[in-house]
């Protein structure tokens, strides 16, 4: 049983087609709400965590321990006037923040969350090639950033967008190669290694232990994908004011902001799924999502610590690093994994 089937059980009086349509719709809305809530919680967590690392208290005025601060911020951003630069290219300028958010939201849907008590599986949708789909959806986000940078007609934004693109091309190849290693290892055990669920079931031992290089590469790629320090050249606040999102205000800026935190959460969830066994763990048949959540939160906290303690790397050094170090390392990782898979039969 899964969440969808339970919903269909409620709406089965509408007939097969309409009933599934309605339950899909309700499920989608539920996912949207849950993800939005998770992101708000994560921004709250970030602000509290950052404050405590810096020996401050963080938000503590709105609500108990400032828990309603983010809601207040959201309302503030909604109520703000959206200032549009007069020289903009209107269509891409308006579409860009949405593209960032849409790619992110869709990618969350494909992640397997496992089953929770009596509800059953709460994974939204299944696909035999969900790994490829997720990375395809994540590839939408840089397009949004590029569009935002170019359409604002701002020099800072343009530079930020160019940096973001240069960054993207230099880390995505090693990222996909490390992903290939995971799929390769899983292909020895399951017949559909591109399905995230079978990837998890293939992990008799977390792949993070078998592929230390792979998890390192993937983590770096996820840091770069979410673009926070040390790899936030695209929006480096002390150099390019705010990079590609310089000209955005109000809710449109909030979309970029949420997109960034969402990518951190997505990256952590992906990393926990691909390398740390996702929902598997003790009692995973009933508390699978909680395992995903715990693993993701630990990774998120590590990401925040990285963010807060490291300086920004220079863009040319990062491109250098991506092509001269990450790429060879990812090949080495691939070879090692090949030896493990074929030679030792793991």
């Amino acid at each position: 049983m899964s969440l969808l089937e339970r919903l269909f059980g409620v709406f089965s009086f509408l007939g097969h087609d309409l009933g599934y349509a309605v339950s899909y719709l309700i499920q989608a809305v539920l996912y949207l709400i849950v993800i939005a809530l998770l992101l708000i919680l994560m921004i709250y967590l970030f602000r509290k965590f950052m404050a405590r690392l810096q020996q401050r208290l963080g938000p503590n005025r709105v609500g108990k321990f400032g828990s309603l601060q983010l809601i207040a911020d959201a309302f503030k951003l909604l109520g703000k006037e959206s200032i549009l630069p007069s020289e903009r290219d209107n269509f891409p300028f308006v579409v860009a923040p949405m593209m960032v958010l849409i790619g992110l939201m869709l990618a969350f849907v494909l992640i397997p969350y496992g089953s929770l008590y009596w509800i059953g599986s709460i994974t939204a949708t299944h696909s035999a090639v969900s790994v490829i789909l997720i990375f395809a959806l994540m590839a939408i986000m840089p397009i949004g950033e590029l569009l935002a940078g170019v359409s604002s007609h701002n020099k800072y934004a343009l530079l930020g967008a160019l940096r973001a693109v240069a960054k993207d091309v230099s880390f995505e190849v090693p990222m996909m190669l490390s992903l290939l290693a995971v799929v390769m290892m899983a292909s020895a055990r399951v017949s559909t290694p591109l399905d995230m669920e079978s990837l998890i079931s293939a992990q008799f031992l977390a792949y993070g232990i078998l592929q230390p290089l792979g998890i390192f590469l993937f983590f770096i790629a996820m840091v770069a994908r979410a673009s926070y320090t040390p790899f936030d050249m695209g929006e480096s606040d002390s150099e390019l004011v705010s990079g590609y999102s310089t000209e955005y205000t109000g809710m449109r800026f909030a979309m970029f902001y949420i997109g960034m935190f969402g990518t951190i959460l997505l990256g952590s969830t992906l990393l926990s799924t691909l390398y740390l066994g996702g929902y598997s763990g003790p009692f995973s048949s009933s508390i699978g999502p909680i395992w995903v959540f715990i693993k993701a939160i630990i990774l998120v906290l590590i990401s925040f610590t990285v963010w807060l303690s490291l300086p920004r790397i220079r863009i040319d050094k990062f491109v250098n690093f991506g092509w001269k170090y990450l790429l060879p390392v990812s090949f080495i990782n691939l070879i090692l994994v090949g030896i493990l898979t074929l030679g030792l039969g793991w």
Binding site: M50, Q54, P230, L308, S309, R312
Partner: peptide, 9 residues
């Protein structure tokens, strides 16, 4: 340089 935390220390 983008280091947020040493500033506070």
């Amino acid at each position: 340089l983008g280091m947020l935390t040493p500033f506070f220390y």
